[in-house]
Amino acid sequence: MRVRGLNWLFLGGIVASFVLQLMPLPAVLLPFKPYWLALVLIYWMIELPEKVPLGLCFALGIVADLVGGEVLGEQAMRLCILCFIVLRFRSRLRFFPMWQQTLAVFALLLNDRIVYLMVHAIAGDPPPDLDFWFAPVAGMLAWPWLFLLLDDLRARLRAGDT
């Protein structure tokens, strides 16, 4: 019963992150759209790494590419790199205080942005504007709230069972 509820929370979080990613926003807010999918995946990797193997990150990246309509394989690559780094340093990330964790998430998102930039630079696209770099900041600000929300939901699931 508990596992079933947890699975629903996991699946629901990922579907919600896809929807948030695609939601049309006013042009002013668009550069501040955090990389929701990455944030949700980071949470699950820190808390329950056995639920998020590297292969799942890759598969979700492919789906995100299909949904988002950019170069196929690009988000798969970004998520794989992200996932790998988080799984490597998971034991440390897990026991960081919140502010340190938030900074770590910022670094991860920044690294992700740089990978994104590299992929497009190699493909020959021109460099982006300054607002390209706003998204990691927005992601960093969103992280504590997302973490608390998912933690709370998970705690409620556990409490409901016992």
């Binding site: 170069v71 196929l72 394989g73 798969a76 493909a123």
Partner: peptide
């Protein structure tokens, strides 16, 4: 996985 991703990207371009 990275190799697969890169191959996909090249194929897509």
């Amino acid at each position: 996985y990275l190799v697969i991703a890169v191959a996909l990207m090249i194929a897509d371009r």
